[in-house]
Nucleic acid binder design. Sequence first.
DNA 1: GATGAATGAGGGTTCATTCAT
DNA 2: CATGAATGAACCCTCATTCAT
Lengths: 200, 200, 200, 200
Amino acid sequence: MARRAGSSGAETAEKLRNVALELFAQSGYAAVSMRAIAAATGVQAGAIYNHFPTKQDLLNELLQVHMETLLASCAEAEQPGLMPPDALEEFVRFHIRYHLDRSREVFISYMELRNLEGENFNEIERLRRQYERVPYAILERGAADGSFSIIDPQVTTMAIIAMLNGMTTWYRDNGRLSLDEIEAIYVRLVARLVGQQEED
Amino acid sequence: MARRAGSSGAETAEKLRNVALELFAQSGYAAVSMRAIAAATGVQAGAIYNHFPTKQDLLNELLQVHMETLLASCAEAEQPGLMPPDALEEFVRFHIRYHLDRSREVFISYMELRNLEGENFNEIERLRRQYERVPYAILERGAADGSFSIIDPQVTTMAIIAMLNGMTTWYRDNGRLSLDEIEAIYVRLVARLVGQQEED
Amino acid sequence: MARRAGSSGAETAEKLRNVALELFAQSGYAAVSMRAIAAATGVQAGAIYNHFPTKQDLLNELLQVHMETLLASCAEAEQPGLMPPDALEEFVRFHIRYHLDRSREVFISYMELRNLEGENFNEIERLRRQYERVPYAILERGAADGSFSIIDPQVTTMAIIAMLNGMTTWYRDNGRLSLDEIEAIYVRLVARLVGQQEED
Amino acid sequence: MARRAGSSGAETAEKLRNVALELFAQSGYAAVSMRAIAAATGVQAGAIYNHFPTKQDLLNELLQVHMETLLASCAEAEQPGLMPPDALEEFVRFHIRYHLDRSREVFISYMELRNLEGENFNEIERLRRQYERVPYAILERGAADGSFSIIDPQVTTMAIIAMLNGMTTWYRDNGRLSLDEIEAIYVRLVARLVGQQEED
DNA sequence: GATGAATGAGGGTTCATTCAT
DNA sequence: CATGAATGAACCCTCATTCAT
C-alpha cells in the first residue's frame, strides 16, 4: 500500500520534523537512527528521504528554522523606543518565554551544534551571534545613557544568556515556582548584573 | 603480538581515559567509536576491553572520577571560617579555575549525562546536587547574616553556576581577557547577583 | 544499491532458510556466521535482518517449522483403523522416508536443540514429546490387544526412535542397500523389538 | 604472582581437561571460549597454552583419549570363550555402563566430531569403526553358529549401537528405572534384535 | 509518496592466540 | 607456569542511504 487516505507529503514532513526534534532532544543526534525517527512517525525509513535529503539536512533544517524563528520573533517582540532598562526586561521576558516554549529546539541548538557539518555549523553560529547582539546592544545603550553600570559588556552578555538558558535544564511545569514568578526573578537578577538601581 | 616492551597496563588505561575524554568532548559519546579511541591511543580496539568492560563504563568512569575529584578539590579548597562574601568569592575563583583546567570533563559531564544508563546517571546527578549545595549554603549564610540580599536562593544558585559554566563555552587561551581578569569580572558579577554592596 | 530487479522478499527469505539449514547441518549453529549464510545466499549480511530478527530466530524458525511439519505430515499419513502391527509398520516407513528426505532438519533438531534459548527450547521439546506419543500409543494398543509383547513401552519407544534416527548418520544414496531394502529391514527390526511374531 | 603453592602443571592440565569436557558437553565446542575454560579452571586464558597448543588440540585430546580408553576398556572387559549370546549380553552391559559413566565424553564424541579437523577426524572415525567391529564380530559368530537370526548384520550393528546410545539422551539418575533395570531391558531388546530365542 | 529489500560500512564486543614479565 | 596486556580477525547486528516497485 502507498499513502494512507488523508495523509499528505507536507503532513509527513511536519510530523518528521516534530519527531526528529523530540528524539534528538531526548537522545542526541548521533544516537537517533533514521529508522527510529521513521518508526515514531509511522513510516518506513526510506520515506524520510522523500522529504529530507540526509539525516544531516534534517538536523540542519531544525536548527536553521529554530534560529531564524528565534530572530524573527525577537525582532517582532521588540518594542522600539523603550529605554534600556525596559528593553532589557522585555528581552529577558521574551527569551524566557520563547525558550521554555521551545526547550527542545534550544536544547539541541546547543547540544547538537557540533554535529553540524561545515557551512551548516557556521551559519548557525552566525545566527547565534546575531541574536546575542540584541542584549549586547541594549547593554551598550544602557551603559551610554547611564542607566546601567556594566562591568564588561561582552562577558555580561554571555553571562546573562548562560544564566537564562540554564533555566531550561531545571525548569519543570508544576515546580515550586510559576513561570511568572521565575520570569520576575530573572528580570531582577539581570537588572543586578547590569548594575541597575533596584526599585521597589 | 603480545605486550610491547615498555608499555604497561596502568599507562594504557590512563592514555585511554585521556583520549576518550578528548574525543567525547570533541564529538560526543555516541559519535566516538571504540576503534577511534583505540587508534588515537595506539592500540587495537580489543585492547580497550582489558581496561574497561564496556564503552559505557569508560564514560561512566570519566564522569564519576570527575565529579568526585571536583567535590574533593572543592572541599580541600574551602577555607573554614570565612565570612559569606569572602567564601563566595573563593568559591567563584575555585570554580572558574577548576573548570577551565578541566573544561573537557565539565563539558562532557553536562553533555553526555543523558548517555549514562540508570544508576550511573543517578549517581552523577547526586554528586552534582551535592556540589551545588556548596554555593547554596554560602548564600543561605549570607542571607542570614545580612551580608547578601538574595532574591531566591535556589534560583540564584543555579544562575551563578550556569553563568560560570557558560564561560567554558567561549573562553579561549590568549583571548581578549586574561584568566585573572575574567575571574575578577565573574567575582563582581556574582557579588551583584547576591545583592552585595559593591566596594570600591 | 537497493533491490535487484527480479529478486523478492519471499524468495530471499526462503533461500536464507535453505542455506542456513544446510550450513547449520554441516558445521553447527555456533560455527556458522551470519556472513557465511549471507554469502552463500548471495546477499550482504545486513540483508538477513530484513527477514529474521536475529540468528537465534533463524535457527528457531527452522526447528519450529520442522517439528510442526513433521507432526502434520505424521498425522496426515496416519491411516485410522489399522491394527497395531500395521500401524507400527506404517509409522516406521513414514519416519524413515520423512527423515531421510529431511536429514538436515532432523540432524539439527537433535544437534542444535541446546542452542535454542529458553522458551524456544521448551517448545521444541514439547513438540518432540508429542511426536513420540505416536509410536508410544501404537505400542500400548498392541500391548493391550496382545499383538505385541512389549518389554517396557517407554524404553521401547525411545529405542525405536533412536534406532531409526541412527540411520540418518550412515545412510548414503547409492549405498549397499536401497531405501526400500533399508525400510524393509527396519520394519522387521522394529517388529522384533515389540515382540511380534515373525511371519514368513 | 605465579603458581599457587601446591598446584602443579599436571594438576592444571587435568583440571583443564575436565572443565573443557564439561563445557564442551554443555554448550558445544564452538560456543565455548578459551576464556570460559580458563575462568572455570581458575586460571587466565594464556595459561591454557602451556598445556595445549590450540583449542582444537584440547578437543582432539579429549576425543582421542576417550576412544582409546573405550577400546582398551572394551578389550579388557571381554571374556574370551563366551558363546555369542553371552558375549553380546556382556557387550551390551559393558557399553551401557561405560557410556553412562562417561556420558559427556560420549556426547561430545558424537556431537563435536565434525569440529575435528582433517587427520584428527579420520583417526576418531577409524577408532569408532574399530569399536563397532566388536559387536559386529559377535553378530557374525552368532549368525554362523545359529544362535542368532540376523536380518542384516551391518544394519543390526548400527541399530544396536544407536539404540544403546540413545539412552544417554534421556537417562537420569533417580529416574523411574534403576541402571540395573535399564541394563536388563536393553539386554532383552538387543536379544530380540538379533533374533535370539527369549528364555524365561 | 511510500514500501520493503538491498548495500557497504561500521558499530560494540569477543575470539584464539602470543609473549614480555 | 602463570599473568595480563596485546593483536588482528571475526562476531552479531545496526546504520544511512538507495531504488525497483
